[in-house]
Design a protein around this nucleic acid. Structure first.
Length: 917
RNA sequence: GGCCGAGUGGCGGAAUUGGCAGACGCACGGGACUUAAAAUCCCGAGACCUGAAUGGGUCGUGCGGGUUCGAGUCCCGCCUCGGCUACCA
């Protein structure tokens, strides 16, 4: 009668765990192995949990529950990434305070997660919007503000590793004498210019529809990632974080992490390190070129190139002789200076046009090169030749120096531009002895078109772009030198002549860290005002004990409609104050981006209630770093890069003892909607497609254990896979089979099945038990949960039909199953006669010797084709196996009349006869 | 265009260092139980050819080559799909 009744069992055990605080970790026990397993905490959206959430959450939960059975102390927390746009958009629509909706949504998310039986320590829960939490987010911001990056500093961290480059307190920043001489204000401004958190007037991505400025990362194809709205460029004073200072360490320190190589690659590509050289092209009066060169050879290459020099960045200084023109970005500061009167109209038209281009236009037109000639020429430092300077938007002002030397023969973009604008193309690298170069065939037509345009010697006219390595040609005395050697040689010579210098560049830009919205952390920053109420550019900070700077209560949440932050309409009492010395101050009105809260939440979980500091150093040493971090791949670059950056700053400043926050990272694959029955194709789940699966419905019909089990059984954790309700039914049937194997469904009350008896295991049963323990244990270690489940299914298939099912075997299975289906496991454990939760029961161990079978079946091949299988005693020697194989009638038939050339015997595996004739 | 990953039955997916391809599950077919259905239990099953037969044979892991006694797995060249990125000099 009592069937598998998850509706009774699941709430019962959830209540038990809650009441007994089963998963609460109070204090750290030194000497006991620890596991800190973390899920990427969710944004509590109004639509509730979707089935993608429990995928990663179940995976970490299995590891946590397994680890508790292994005797480890386990930290497994959950919280809410709760600042952000949707709550605010909803607030604008409904005039409800974002906090109201946020905390309502959190309640719903918490209910759903508890319904799934995750073993979180709920006593550590917090939201990034809690004042107790964002107080410390602001505090960390002040640390960033108080830090400058000393790139030359050599030091050894608490991890014992030696590094170059360290974030240090601003008080330790050396002040140059000339700055010191200019007085206190000059010193303050100098310090401000070196801080990791600094202000910068820059064209930002202004999204009128969202009423906010967005980071580059939040823009996809020129439109906002959220809402798909168009984005314009607009100059504004913004907060930036100097993440580029940490670019090298963010790349190098990836090496020791247990992350998939593909995620590491994504981060490396995003950071985009390249090495090359900066080279100065003289743009002053041509008659003064030689004297400039002489001066430079004495003065050397300096950070400030001066007004008469166009500085470029190139990864291929070996192609300097092929530079037939130069390009500066439309926003380059030299545009005006280099434009001749005749070109003025054309240039200003072009500059204006490209400033209006949105990022979307620039992307769309990526292949179609445009540009305009300035009328000016620069002088190539290596050969004294005059090269025209162009303006084109294919050169980005924000990368390198915003100016390039163009080598059309060896760069595809330059090639396209040169062909379009009739500019000479000179080959300076010959692929003849190419080391690893690749030839790229260009369209024959294009090549033809290029030819008559060139007035250079025929031998120099290429018909295709060659961007690989080779040997130098048409490069004067350097002819014949291989690319790499040439690069090093010319860089050194330029350096010596004061004309260039080796340089490194990154695609990574400094992080635009301010938003104009309400629902974010306020900055703990004040701007000094002059007598007229204008900002002087000098700043003060809130002291640590004045934090948090709480968001002001506001009536309306509508964005201002301009790039002006929402908080500029906050009450005056919040916005202004006067210091004791009489200085008037105005609050910073930007708020922090949503990333801020998620940059350090993993630290706070270790010490969530601490009101004296963001994290006690002792606690930090005990629990950090995170041993296992699971979440979606959409955070492969942004969140994971930002969090690593903050962590490194905290590391440099002595607040954390490891240089990396997340030791092992796993990205769960997306769960797609149910596959179409006709096409067999599965699509992303989305409201508009109507294929969203709600975990509540699944739990209602099949229970939380079935949902958990199904999500793990679908396939490898990291793989993208389609949902299947039939599949849920399948694992549900498995759970019901386990239930019937152990309990007596025919009885009126709940009791053990009569076949479950105190009995010794026979040899076969013992083998199945030990095989299953081994397989499940190893599979969990590998996070290969789908195969672990199939092993338990095999176990059940094996034991279910047996008339005597030894209790010990049933207990073993119950524990093995408990990380996956904890509710049912607890219920069965109780039925098997135990009073306590099985949470801390020792994990079963296996004995390899009990797995071995007495006889093994060995496949026999003839010429690599399977012909038969023979049984031999386990551990039989090669001769015995070979003899047994020959005895087999089918094999004998195949060998008859043929010569055995060779016999391959792999003990315990197979026999292969190689025959002729 | 660049970087990364993946292609295995009708479907999701298994397969130590190269060693029985298709575990486990879904769907399907047959049977038992039932007045019937559901549920449950048992049996079958990669495709094709062939035999009276318990059987025998051929093909088979995206395509084409290669290495090897032996390739889903390794090497070379392609194709397709997915993710990230996108004028980064």
């Amino acid at each position: 009668m009592p069937r598998y009744d998850f509706k009774r069992i699941e709430p019962k055990w959830q209540a038990y765990w809650k009441q007994n605080e089963t998963f609460k970790v109070e204090s750290f026990e030194p000497g006991r192995e620890k596991l800190y397993a973390l899920d990427m905490f969710p944004y509590p959206s109004g639509s509730g949990l979707h089935v993608g959430h429990p995928e990663g959450y179940t995976a970490t939960d299995i590891v946590c529950r397994y680890s508790r059975n292994q005797g480890k102390q386990v930290l497994h927390p959950m919280g809410w990434d709760a600042f952000g746009l949707p709550a605010e958009e909803y607030a604008i629509k409904t005039q409800t305070h974002p906090a109201v909706t946020t905390y309502k949504n959190i309640d719903e998310f918490r209910r759903q997660l508890q319904m799934l039986g995750f073993s979180y320590d709920w006593s550590r829960e917090f939201a990034t919007t809690d004042e107790d939490y964002y107080r410390w987010t602001q505090w960390i911001f002040l640390e960033l503000f108080d830090t400058w990056y000393d790139a030359a500093c050599e030091w050894t961290g608490p991890d014992g590793k030696q590094r170059t480059g360290r974030g240090r307190p601003i008080s330790e920043l050396p002040i140059p004498d000339n700055v010191q001489a200019d007085g206190e204000e000059a010193v303050r401004r100098y310090q401000d210019s070196k801080r990791l958190a600094y202000q910068h007037e820059a064209p930002v991505n202004w999204c009128p529809a969202l009423g906010t400025v967005l980071a580059n990362e939040e823009i996809i194809n020129g439109k906002s990632e959220r809402g798909d709205h168009p984005v314009e460029r607009f100059p504004l004073r913004q907060w930036m974080l100097r993440i580029t200072s940490y670019a090298d360490r963010l790349i190098n320190e990836l090496d020791d992490l247990n992350w998939s190589e593909s995620i590491k690659d994504m981060q490396r590509n995003w950071i985009g390190r390249s090495t090359g050289a900066e080279v100065d092209f003289f743009v002053g009066d041509a008659a003064e070129f030689e004297s400039w060169k002489t001066w430079r050879s004495e003065a050397g290459f300096s950070d400030d190139p001066g007004d008469d020099v166009l500085r470029v960045y190139t990864t291929r200084p070996d192609t300097l002789f092929g530079a037939t023109y130069m390009v500066i970005a439309p926003e380059h500061s030299f545009v005006e200076k280099l434009t001749t009167p005749e070109q003025k109209a054309a240039v200003s038209a072009y500059v204006k046009q490209s400033s209006l281009k949105s990022d979307l236009d620039r992307t769309d037109l990526a292949k179609d090169k445009s540009g305009v000639f300035t009328g000016s020429y620069a002088i190539n430092p290596v050969n004294g030749e005059k090269v025209p300077v162009w303006i084109a938007d294919y050169v980005l002002v924000s990368y390198g120096t915003g100016a390039i030397m163009a080598v059309p023969a060896h760069d595809e973009r330059d090639w396209e531009f040169a062909v379009k604008f009739d500019i000479p193309i000179v080959t300076v690298v010959s692929p003849a002895n190419a080391e690893d170069g690749t030839r790229r065939r260009k369209d024959a037509k294009e090549a033809e078109a290029a030819e008559p345009l060139s007035d250079l010697a025929a031998s120099r006219e290429p018909t295709e772009v060659f961007s690989g390595k080779g040997v130098a040609v048409n490069s004067g005395k350097y002819d014949g030198i291989p690319t790499d050697e040439f690069k090093a040689k010319i860089a050194a010579e330029l350096e010596a002549a004061g004309l260039g210098s080796e340089a490194v560049n990154f695609k990574l830009r400094d992080w635009l860290f301010s938003r104009q919205r309400y629902w974010g952390e306020p900055f703990p920053i004040w701007h000094e005002l002059d007598a007229d109420g204008n900002e002087t550019g000098l700043m003060r900070v809130d002291a640590a004990d004045e934090l948090p700077v709480v968001l002001p209560e506001m009536e309306k949440f509508k964005p201002t409609g301009t790039p002006e932050p929402m908080l500029s309409t906050a009450p005056e009492s919040w916005l202004f104050k006067t210091t004791e010395d009489g200085t008037k101050l105005k609050r910073e009105t930007n708020t922090m981006p949503q990333w801020a809260g998620s940059c350090w939440y993993y630290l706070r979980f270790a010490d969530p209630k601490n009101s004296d500091c963001f994290l006690d150093p002792e606690v930090e040493k005990n629990w950090l770093p995170v041993d296992l971090y699971v979440g979606g791949a959409e955070h492969a670059v942004l969140h994971l890069l930002y969090a690593r950056f903050w962590h490194k700053v905290l590391f440099d400043r002595g607040h954390v003892s490891t240089c990396e926050p997340f030791h092992k990272l796993v990205n769960q694959g997306m769960i797609l909607g149910e596959a179409d029955s006709e096409t067999g194709k599965a699509e992303k789940m989305s409201k508009s497609r109507g294929n969203v699966i709600n975990p509540d419905d699944v739990v209602k019909d099949y229970g939380a254990d079935a949902l958990r089990l199904y999500e793990m059984f679908m396939g490898p954790l990291e793989q993208v896979k389609p949902w299947s309700m039939k599949g849920v039914e399948g694992v549900y049937r498995f759970l019901a089979r386990v239930w019937r194997m152990i309990t007596d469904e025919d009885a009126d009350e709940i009791r053990l099945h009569p076949s479950v008896q105190e009995a010794e295991l026979n040899e076969d049963q013992e083998r199945v038990v030990h095989k299953t323990i081994k397989a499940v244990t190893e599979d969990i270690e590998k996070l290969s949960f789908n195969t672990a489940i199939s092993r338990m299914m095999e176990f059940t298939n094996e034991f279910s039909p047996q008339a005597v099912r030894p209790k010990s075997a049933m207990e073993t299975l119950t524990i093995l199953l408990s990380p996956f289906a904890p509710h049912m496991a607890e219920e069965l454990w109780q039925l098997l006669g135990h009073d306590n939760t099985l949470t801390f029961e020792p994990w079963p161990t296996f004995d390899e010797s009990k797995i071995a079978e007495a006889e093994v079946e060995i496949p026999v091949q003839v010429n690599g084709k399977l012909k038969a299988k023979v049984k031999v005693p386990a551990g039989a020697d090669n001769a015995t196996i070979e003899e047994a194989a020959k005895q087999n009638s089918t094999v004998a038939g195949n060998l008859e009349g043929k010569t055995i050339v060779k016999v391959v015997v792999v003990p315990g595996r197979l026999v292969n006869f190689v025959v002729k004739g």
